[in-house]
């Protein structure tokens, strides 16, 4: 079901700014790959470029067997990619139910899958008919993630899902993502919270100044505080 993602020599320009400057990395199928880096390194741009929301000015992006770098975002989504943006981008004027209805492209929402989602996010059941804009930040994040998994997808692109959330909520999100991962879905996760990265990541790619500067196993990076300091300007111990 899952498929791998490969970026080769990807460049992205936004206006006159050259953000991605030849990004090369792969996301192995069925694995969770963390995309780390300092603020402004180009992580969000990378996800948006993969999703087709910003066009790569050069380079190739392959998802499974298909080249997707020239596809519009709708076609990328239809190839099995779901995107959870950093801003969550939930539809505030729509109810929680309507947000999920919209994400269920293939037809009515599968009740079994919905119940499965409710096991992680009971708040969504409670506020099923509430206006999504009236939810708290954590609840909005739940809507955003639920929207991405309301139907099976082959690749999840998730941008800083724990940003600004309380620790109790983060724990639940980790459980949810772990469960999705167990289902064999390929995940590319941008995350600033190193504890989350360590708990979820199989692989890690580190970006700096629009380029990939480190490729390896997450466990290796988590075990090497010198490397963390060198790549990210932090040590894991300080982010427990």
């Amino acid at each position: 079901m899952s498929a791998g993602l490969v970026l080769q020599g990807v460049h992205t320009h936004i206006g006159r700014y050259h953000i991605l400057q030849g990004v090369d990395f792969d996301v192995p199928p069925g694995k969770t790959t963390m995309l780390l880096g300092r603020n402004g390194a180009g992580k969000t741009t990378c996800l948006r470029t993969i999703m087709g929301l910003w066009k790569a000015s050069k380079g190739t992006i392959r998802f499974g067997e298909a080249a997707i770098e020239a596809l519009p975002a709708s076609a990328v989504a239809r190839s099995g990619v779901a995107y959870v943006p950093e801003t969550m981008a939930i539809f505030s004027d729509l109810s929680v139910r309507e947000n999920l209805l919209l994400a269920a492209r293939e037809g009515p929402i599968d009740d079994k899958r919905l119940e499965w989602i409710f096991t992680f996010f009971p708040a969504l059941k409670k506020f099923w008919l509430s206006r999504a804009g009236s939810l708290s930040g954590g609840q909005k994040q739940m809507v955003s993630i639920a929207r991405a998994i309301i139907e099976p997808r082959r690749l999840l692109l998730i941008d800083e899902p724990t940003k600004g959330l309380a620790p109790a909520i983060i724990g639940g999100l980790i459980e949810c993502l772990r469960e999705i991962k167990r289902g064999g879905v390929t995940i590319l996760l941008v995350e600033q919270n190193f504890r989350v990265a360590r708990e979820l990541g199989d692989e890690v790619r580190v970006m700096d100044n629009g380029r990939i500067v480190h490729v390896g196993a997450m466990a290796e990076l988590a075990a090497d505080s010198r490397l963390q300091g060198q790549l990210l300007g932090l040590s894991l111990d300080s982010h427990q």
Binding site: M51, L53, P72, A73, S74, A77, R78, Y83, P85, A89, F91, S92, D93, L94, E98, L101, L102, A103, R105, R147
Partner: peptide, 23 residues
């Protein structure tokens, strides 16, 4: 559903596209 798409599109066109709809 068309109505839902229109209401969602008024709010955030990009996300409608990212959900797989031809905006």
């Amino acid at each position: 559903k068309i109505g839902l798409l229109i209401r969602a599109g008024v709010e955030n066109r990009e996300m409608v596209e990212a959900l797989g709809y031809r905006i």
